[in-house]
Design a protein around this nucleic acid. Structure first.
Lengths: 224, 224
DNA sequence: TTCACTTTGTAACATTGGTTACATTTCAAA
DNA sequence: TTTGAAATGTAACCAATGTTACAAAGTGAA
């Protein structure tokens, strides 16, 4: 019923051979459930006490807003796992409602069985720990970035980070527009601020190269 | 050399009896290192390939800004673990420099040995997974909150979240000032916006009770 | 009650950044 | 080289929010 050669493509089982996968699954309890197009798979708010991996087909995740309307959050397809962030931790309920957008096969592993799997196989354990740790690190970075209020601060942080201790000059790969989007600001605002920083003698710009003239003053910006 | 009755207070080992702790530690390799006041324990940028738990004393974590000056990030004391967020994941280097603020005893468990521990003991595994998952969930919540740009949106989100599906009226415990701090805005701005929302017929305020008059319209605010 | 202290409401003004529009520059394909 | 599309620089204007200041209301203790 399970298809080891598909499942081992999943981030959680990466590096496991299909044979090994098959063997591991003989040692735990699990279910393979099939759904037809448009079937409800998980109701938002339901307790998340099992790991779900899409083995076949694709699903959509939607969230109910407070007035009952639904907003689509993301599309997922085989062999991706579902809501790995909510299996453990304080808030272990599905934040989203999941339904099938094609015919779907879903592998469902109860939480205690998945814990067994983690204990049996070091690679799976490492994969899973890496997955959620990387996610936390990513969120943390993003949060730090958002904590800078003004565009000037965001630019200063970005440039100093990119330049490191040594370099004076930073070359940016993205276009100004992409950079602006990353910063969560509009392109004209970013350009305006870059212009201001030039006038103030903080930086010098030349095409896609930005030279930092006064690192100390840039740091001051980040502290206030 | 290790003190099981202290270590089992640590979030990672919560629920483990001191006897069991002692037994577990006979099965893995680890070190107990002692430091004197002001000794350097971890240099920022160093690879994080071991779990460090403070067994005695307290330490401070500092970060170097780009010009070389150091900023204190936090104080930690026994029996807290260090930088659990960086043992796994893509970015596994210490982001901070750690030094002793008193005489310190530090239990150092190499990553592979800690993985063994996770595989030997289900409770430890669950504790650790819960710790990092909860952290990720917390960050995710915070990020969602910050994604609302205007104060009106933040208020709407906060109230709708607090009211849930049924309630019409929300009672807030904190003072307006504390609420404003939570929202990352100034108190007068928050008060002003609450006033505006009253005038627009969205809410009614009476002391610390806020009545939501039009949930649908509030939801509209969050979408734009 | 009265007095000091905290919380809340509000207003004037300054700053930041979004919006829109347009000119200029760059760059690659014809 | 020419030409058109994309990227960039810039300006005028507007909305949102911070800043500062002060008055009004609530609150608890003497």
């Amino acid at each position: 019923m399970i298809q080891p050669e598909i499942l081992c493509q999943s981030p959680i089982f990466r590096g496991i051979s299909p044979e090994e996968m098959a063997k591991l699954f003989t040692q735990i309890h699990f279910q393979v459930k099939t759904y037809q197009k448009n079937d409800l798979i998980v109701m938002g708010g339901e307790v998340c006490d099992r790991l779900l991996i899409i083995q076949l087909g694709s699903v959509k995740a939607e969230m109910n807003d407070y007035s009952g309307k639904t907003i689509k959050i993301e599309d997922l397809s085989a062999p991706q796992p579902l809501a790995t962030a909510f299996l453990f931790g304080m808030q272990n309920r599905f934040p989203v409602t999941v339904s099938a957008t094609t015919d779907v096969e879903m592998v469902s592993i109860p939480k205690p069985e998945f814990v067994k799997l983690l204990q049996m196989n070091t690679l799976i354990l490492n994969n899973y720990l890496n997955t959620i740790s990387t996610r936390a690190q990513f969120l943390s970075q993003k949060l730090k970035f958002l904590s800078f209020k003004t565009i000037k601060q965001k630019i200063a942080h970005y440039l100093l980070e990119k330049a490191g201790d040594r370099l004076q000059t930073v070359e940016i790969q993205q276009s100004q527009g992409q950079l602006a989007e990353m910063f969560g600001v509009t392109r004209p605002s970013l350009a305006r601020t870059l212009g201001e920083m030039c006038q103030e003698g903080l930086i010098e710009t030349d095409r896609r190269c930005i030279k930092i003239l006064d690192k100390n003053q840039m740091n001051q910006l980040l502290k206030s």
